[in-house]
Design a protein around this nucleic acid. Structure first.
Length: 815
RNA sequence: GUCGGCGUGGCGGAAUGGCAGACGCGCCAGCCUUAGGAGCUGGUGCCCGAAAGGGCGUGGAGGUUCAAAUCCUCUCGCCGACACCA
């Protein structure tokens, strides 16, 4: 049965396509590079074109769109671009897994087309003229160019690195593709560790700046800044040389953050990969040490780094001399020491380090306390004491505070040339080589005569061959000539990590078609920095750290004027359904087509904003969506058919909303909604709009005239609702007889004088308890307020018999 | 283990030192009816009460304050990140 609307009813399907076309035809969100208006760069993290876009993914795009539309109405020239992180393992894997032999390029481009259509269906406006796709040669040409820039600046280098290797596929795997130590495609094949020469970027050169500049990012979530701080992991300590006993000239350099515990070192530990292991090991211990090192190398990274596991190690038979007291201490090899951090060797102070303590207990090594806790020396050493305290068992330093001894010991070591202060970072250089087809080829050539030769910039891009097959097995790709000597040479067959593609895409948007350079510096400097960057918290470290690194390198190269790319960062929550993150593959996704075909894109947009706080994960429900549909329908009627709102038979007794209340509510709503959109507090912004609609309805019911005041209220409601529900608002705007698009209409101006309440409620508390509420003039003096309060029967009753608390006025609320 | 976040009605949530529960969902009662997955009115934290009114109430226990969901200490629970970085 078809329900028969008696009035013109809001039918989203009839209006949404029409306005989407109008916006596209009029280029509504096309950003002009030269505009007298102030710029606003509104960016959302571009996605992998994985083809499973749902209303869940659309949520953060809607956030960006609401802001873009408001900023535009407020008179900003808004840059709101979109693009595709189209290269990389996810695209390639998906092509292999789901595409049934489909070429990654075809698969990717098809998904881009699908995704683009769906975003338009949601009414999200991007400047599609600026769309970038990282897998296209006119994009990755510049990714390669930037790699060469890194190379020129000494920031790209080759080095041996242990990597995860799948013996069946004959390829390196990303960490994410190693599941329980096995290849994701061959669950019965264990991944091997291999040493391979790989390309790295020297992000560690920028560790200090990446850390220090976090302080400027005061509009980033605290959480992300803390995560980056921890990831960079700056520590202050000392390097100390321990001579190897009986081996003249041989010494082991260690790094410690606690030189004050030097007297407590009772053994030393080398990482299994430490180059001195072979040399210091005595004949008697050689076989056991070799076994141990061999075993350690076979273990996966995950096993090696597990803190759960009991520590293991072997003695080398060698001894070292503690430089502060001449003591002979044994040298061990143990895999709890990492060759990649510090110097790959440590002095072990079991009394004051948990890990050394555990190891000493296991192998029955001595434990000597050298820092006494404030409560005095521990009689029974049951656990390591990590804090500061008075020095004991430390020769001339005894009795000093350990924080003082720290510096004295460092000074003494430096004077004798046995050590020096050092700063270490946890951050490692960025391994960017990927043995994959679907990526930007690293633009270098290996020449037997000239060695590593960069491909000249004017010969870029090094294009991916059409044929989908490993580059290292494709002679027509790798067989080439040396750009220097013209002799036969071999191309690099590794491609770049996709995080490189995404480390600069926000700059390409400034001049996406520039044929001569990655971006036009002048335009980049015009649009940068990004004013609002919205995306998932899963990129808190990787993408955001890499982008910051790239920006700083480009700043140093004089190509951009900013040192930080993103002024304000926002991490939105995920949309769940039936308790699980919404996705097509999980089978709980709501597609954008479904939404547009039922409740409509506008209701979907409002619902995505109203569903909960933007940073929280939220649960999608049909009931919640329905509530928003009803709200939109009510607005529709208020705006277009106010006569239908007043029920037949009059509305006597309806709470009176007179015109001054209406006028005030409208002004207050403008103020609050503007503020809350700006702060991305969309859920409460929607609530304010609902309140306004309720007030307007009450006004009509109470017999309010549909005069100029009403007309103004209606237009204001439509204007401030527009960023959330742009199709419906365009339609209402037109039907109201307004000329032009509401997308181009000016944003209502907040007038605090109109918004001010003529009367306020003075809430009187006595001894912390609410006693009365009085209607008073706003801004009345303290004395008058007290007087008014004391005039209240209820207040006086509360005061008696104890009297006025403290005998004085302390404050009031409800202003 | 370390760091961080979060605990508020039946539900999503609002309030960031000053009226707890805005707004919405759901539910209850009623109205209207073209009988709908529609619209409207009123109610809806808990307890006592016919009502007026009173008491209690933001995971728990203390504390600071005239005043605490909000600040502090401890504690329980859930979630997230990092996890041998010397």
């Amino acid at each position: 049965m078809v329900s028969r609307p008696r009035r013109s009813v809001y039918v989203p399907q009839e209006i949404e396509p029409k306005w989407q076309k109008a916006w596209a035809d009029q280029g509504v969100l096309t950003a002009a590079d030269s505009s007298p208006k102030p710029k606003f760069y509104d960016l959302v993290m571009y996605p992998y074109p994985s083809g499973d876009l749902t209303v869940g993914h659309a949520r953060n795009y809607v956030m960006g769109d609401v802001l873009a539309r408001m900023k535009r109405m407020q008179g900003f020239e808004v840059l709101h671009p979109f693009g595709w992180d189209a290269f990389g393992l996810p695209a390639e894997n998906a092509a292999m897994k789901r595409g049934g032999g489909l070429h990654p390029a075809k698969w990717t481009r098809d998904n881009i087309a699908k995704g683009k259509r769906e975003l338009k269906l949601m009414g999200i406006l991007y400047d599609w003229d600026r769309e970038v796709s990282t897998c296209e040669p006119d994009y990755y040409r510049w990714t390669q160019w930037l790699f060469l820039l890194m190379l020129e600046r000494g920031l790209a280098y080759r080095a041996m690195a242990p990597v995860n290797w799948c013996p069946v596929d004959k390829t390196v795997l990303a960490n994410e593709q190693v599941i329980n130590g096995r290849c994701w495609r061959h669950p019965d094949v264990e991944v091997e560790k291999r040493d391979l020469e790989q390309w790295f970027l020297k992000i560690t050169d920028y560790a200090d700046r990446l850390l220090d500049d976090l302080a400027q990012l005061d509009q980033w979530p605290q959480k992300v800044r803390v995560m980056q701080t921890n990831w960079i992991g700056r520590s202050v300590g000392t390097e100390v040389d321990f001579a190897v006993d009986g081996m003249a000239g041989e010494s082991i350099r260690i790094y410690t953050t606690r030189p004050d515990t030097l007297f407590g070192a009772t053994f030393m530990v080398l990482a299994p990969e430490h180059p001195l292991v072979e040399r210091v090991t005595t004949e008697k211990h050689r076989a056991r040490v070799r076994d141990y090192v061999e075993k350690a190398r076979k273990e996966t990274e995950i096993e090696r780094l597990s803190t759960e596991r009991e520590k293991s190690g072997v003695a080398t038979g060698a001894f070292a001399i503690n430089p502060v007291n001449g003591e002979k201490i044994p040298i061990w090899v143990a895999d709890y020491v990492l060759v990649t951090y510090g110097t790959g060797a440590i002095m072990a102070v079991p009394a004051h380090d948990e890990r050394d303590f555990e190891f000493a207990r296991r192998y029955d090594l001595p434990i000597r306390e050298v820092i006494a806790p404030p409560a005095g020396p521990q009689k029974m050493l049951r656990e390591a004491y990590l804090g500061q305290g008075k020095m004991v068992n430390s020769g001339e330093y005894n009795g000093l505070d350990s924080t003082v001894a720290f510096d004295r010991i460092c000074d003494a070591l430096e004077k004798k040339g046995l050590g020096k202060r050092a700063i270490k970072f946890r951050l490692r250089d960025w391994l960017i080589s990927r043995q994959r087809y679907w990526g930007a080829p690293i633009p270098v050539v290996y020449c037997p005569r000239d060695g590593i030769v960069p491909v000249p910039k004017d010969q870029l891009p090094v294009e991916l061959p059409e044929e989908y097959r490993p580059l290292a097995e494709n002679p027509s790709f790798y067989e080439t000539t040396c750009p220097k000597c013209d002799g036969p040479a071999r191309r690099e067959t590794d491609t770049m990590d996709t995080f490189i593609d995404s480390s600069w895409y926000f700059l390409r948007y400034a001049s996406p078609h520039d044929p001569a350079e990655p971006f036009d510096s002048e335009l980049a400097n015009h649009w940068m920095p990004v004013d609002q960057y919205t995306g998932g918290v899963e990129h808190a470290i990787l993408h955001l750290l890499y982008s910051r690194f790239f920006t700083k390198v480009l700043y140093d190269a004089g190509l951009v004027a900013v040192t930080e790319p993103f002024v304000r960062l926002f991490n939105q929550g995920m949309v769940k359904r039936f308790g699980q993150v919404m996705s097509k593959s999980a089978g709980n996704g709501v597609s954008i087509d479904e939404l547009a075909g039922s409740a409509g894109a506008d209701a979907g947009r409002i619902y995505e904003m109203f569903i909960g706080p933007p940073e929280e994960d939220v649960e999608w429900t049909e009931a919640g969506l329905n509530g928003v549909v009803k709200f939109l329908q009510r607005v529709w009627r208020l705006v277009l058919e106010p006569e239908s709102v007043v029920a037949e038979g009059g509305e006597a007794g309806v709470s009176a909303v007179d015109v001054s209340v209406l006028r005030r509510k409208v002004a207050q709503t403008v103020g609050k909604v503007t503020e809350h959109y700006d702060e991305l507090r969309f859920n409460t912004a929607v609530a304010f709009l609902m309140e306004l609609a309720n007030t307007m309805q009450d006004y009509l019911r109470g017999g309010g005239a549909r005069d100029a005041e009403w007309d103004s209220a209606v237009r204001t409601l439509v204007s401030v609702l527009n960023p959330l529900a742009p199709h419906a608002c365009e339609e209402m705007w037109q039907r109201l007889g307004e000329k032009g698009l509401i997308a181009d209409a000016p944003w209502p101006v907040f007038d605090p004088a109109v918004a001010a309440e003529p009367k306020v409620v003075l809430v009187v508390q006595v001894a912390g308890k609410l006693r009365d509420r009085l209607e008073v003039e706003p801004g009345l003096s303290e004395a008058d307020a007290v007087k008014a309060a004391l005039a209240s029967e209820k207040v006086r009753a509360a005061l008696d018999p104890q009297g006025w608390v403290g005998g004085q006025w302390v404050g009031y609320t409800g202003w």
